[in-house]
Measured scan of single mutants.
Amino acid sequence: RGITCLDHENEKVNMYCVSDDQLICALCKLVGRHRDHQVASLNDR
């Protein structure tokens, strides 16, 4: 089922925000508060 995003409840987390040490979803990176932050794919970890 996967872990859902805290900010976007219908989205699954699939990225890690290095700047905030937090799991995020694609919407967080595209339009959310993490858009200018350094992120890594969970597949890279």
Results as ranks from 00 to 15, higher is better:
H37K: 15
G32M: 00
V31W: 03
H37E: 04
T4Y: 14
V31L: 08
G32C: 01
V13Q: 10
R35F: 01
K12G: 08
L27R: 15
V31S: 13
H34V: 01
L27Y: 04
L30T: 13
A40R: 12
D7E: 12
A40S: 13
E11D: 10
R35W: 01
C28A: 00
C5A: 02
C28Q: 02
T4C: 06
H8M: 01
D7Q: 07
R45A: 15
M15C: 15
A40K: 07
E9W: 05
D20T: 01
C17W: 00
R33G: 12
R33Y: 09
L42T: 08
V18S: 12
K12C: 03
N43C: 08
L42Q: 07
A26H: 06
N10C: 06
L42E: 14
L27M: 11
I3G: 12
K29S: 13
N14D: 07
C5P: 01
C17S: 07
V31A: 14
S41Y: 02
L6I: 15
D20S: 02
V31M: 08
E9L: 12
Q38R: 11
V39A: 09
D44Q: 05
G2A: 07
Y16H: 08
S41K: 08
S19E: 13
G2I: 01
T4R: 05
Y16D: 09
T4K: 06
K12I: 05
N43G: 11
K12P: 14
N10V: 03
E9M: 12
V18N: 08
V18G: 12
S19P: 10
L42F: 07
A40C: 09
E9R: 11
A40T: 09
V31F: 10
Q22P: 03
V13P: 05
C5T: 02
A26W: 11
K12D: 11
Q22D: 06
D7N: 08
S19W: 05
T4D: 07
I3D: 14
E9Q: 12
Q38F: 01
D7K: 04
H34M: 01
L27Q: 15
G32S: 03
Y16E: 14
L42K: 10
C25A: 00
D7I: 11
H37L: 01
D36P: 04
V18E: 14
R1M: 10
Q22S: 12
R35Q: 08
L23E: 15
D44K: 06
R33Q: 11
L42M: 10
M15P: 05
I3W: 05
R35S: 11
D44A: 07
C25S: 00
